[in-house]
Design a protein around this nucleic acid. Sequence first.
DNA 1: TTTTTGATAGAAATCGATTTCGAAAATATT
DNA 2: AATATTTTCGAAATCGATTTCTATCAAAAA
Lengths: 338, 338
Amino acid sequence: MGRTKLSDIAKALELSKTTISKVLNGYPDVNALTRKRVLDYIKEVGFEANTQASFLRTKETKTVALILPQISHDFFNSILEGMLKIAQQTEYTFYVACSNESYELETKLISKFLKRNVDAIFLSISRETRNFDHLRAIHEEGKILVLYDKIEKTIDCPKIIIDDRKASFTATEHLIKKGCRKILHFRGGFLPQISIDRYLGYRDALDKYDIPFDKERIFICENANEKDGFFAAKKALESGIDFDGLFTISDLLAIGAIQFFKKNKIQVPEDISVVGFSNWKLSSFTYPTITTVDQPGNLMGEKIFQTFLTEKSLKKQGLDPENREIKLPSKLIIRESS
Amino acid sequence: MGRTKLSDIAKALELSKTTISKVLNGYPDVNALTRKRVLDYIKEVGFEANTQASFLRTKETKTVALILPQISHDFFNSILEGMLKIAQQTEYTFYVACSNESYELETKLISKFLKRNVDAIFLSISRETRNFDHLRAIHEEGKILVLYDKIEKTIDCPKIIIDDRKASFTATEHLIKKGCRKILHFRGGFLPQISIDRYLGYRDALDKYDIPFDKERIFICENANEKDGFFAAKKALESGIDFDGLFTISDLLAIGAIQFFKKNKIQVPEDISVVGFSNWKLSSFTYPTITTVDQPGNLMGEKIFQTFLTEKSLKKQGLDPENREIKLPSKLIIRESS
DNA sequence: TTTTTGATAGAAATCGATTTCGAAAATATT
DNA sequence: AATATTTTCGAAATCGATTTCTATCAAAAA
């Protein structure tokens, strides 16, 4: 017999589909008594309109897509967690996909979701992405785009980010206050904005305390994993430059570096203080535990979804949004490594 | 102007919508030349049928829903990762949701997804779930259900699991071979099948090596996290019973226990050997690193999706499936804690 | 030549909702 | 009492595809 339909309700109440639909969509030309009769009955049988059918006329699917650059990553994971927590209570459902840091896959996924007529796409740009036409396509189809974490400044859309520059400043400052003057920095590649911002925060701190910047102390790690951290530390040692501190853009880099230091009898934190980034769960279980910057992933997930909702309602009212960049606060967590 | 529609193609080629649709759906009554003309044009403009519109007639949405009991959990995470990796290449899209180990939320999510007319639901049952009517509802609506990891044996559907009993046997046997005779077991609650199976595996190993079972060495941990592990270890010590080994059903429990042991000058692995479960990423970064059972999450994710595809094609052909329980192999990873 | 068959294409109904527009009934105004 | 206005409701068109059923035409069989 299948799911209850609009016409079933109409038949049962001896009304037309039109009237039932009007009640559901808040049209004013329905008698108060009739409205009540319909609402009561709907509550009784638990009717909800078929989204697929509604879409044909309304062009709204009540679905959104979250594209993550990585899945097995504590920070992105907590974003997903935070978003689901609040969004599951709404009528929206969530597509989830992973670009795997690939530009090609990212464009494919976006095109796929646009074909599915999602109402919005939430994206953190992949490491490879240099061209942004696929983001413009989202706007051309009248859909909402919300960028988070790894954003592109030139695209006009809401953006949710961590205040990376400030967080890095605080982290580096912490090392300076601990007495470090020769601080290494393991940074990311040249494109993602966050990698640049974190580097700038590091520079800010040096500047503030009149510590000369030495570009020999900067090491680029394309993949923010243990292996890259290990080898960056190796390169640092082999380069002969001296150091007493290390600020990395990821806990995994910090772990890899610490592994290398241990192997070479360089003690953490006695010989070198280390600060990571992201507050991976494992950073509080390593030996030594790692000082790190906690990024509010759950909060970010919530904000992304809420931002979409307000963006949508603004759009409906034909209004232009004002501040489209939301910076979330991060927090330095001090542990044994510093 | 919007997305290309069937009628646009029809107009451009001076054919009817019918013919275009027939080409797309492989009907035989289309001239080979016409078919080629249509296919060529479709390739040129990159047309794909609107899923929402198709659904109205075909009742297929080409969407599936994955319900995870937890998000921030390495194993479930890698299931999601594995599934996305292969499923993103298909025409299907993925809804993801999290029951948060709540029965109420689980039923709500399922009902929500059924309203959305998903083609299939992939579920790992929540810890709270005792009643299974909501699973039967999935079948009543003609949708496919695939259970994974935390399954319910009485429901007739494909099930993908780890061979938990055997894995636990191997883990416990490893402790025995290391010389342990008084092995603690931190188990889960009484319901999820996996918790029972892991306990049975532990018993199997004791039996095989003629080690008497002592129920005083079993501790129940409802939440498989560090805190529960810490307190279970505390209870074990306070109970006065002696021990030289510990097998837990989760790495987090093992970590918590090791933290307690360290605090009380009980050395791992000198005084007690410890084996965890799941191979969380962090278990290879703790001090000492933790011996554990690696569960092939990625593989499980792939299998779940593949199983759905075969189940669907069997259903279409009106065939009954044979073996509906797939057991995946796990692997003991030996590290410093044992 | 007439009839039958087969190949090909399209008209129209359908899926389940939304929305426009017009009709009928109730009420207000003159 | 006649007319104008407001309330309330439903018929029908629509969204974009699929599918059934019918029509046409050419080739084959009678």
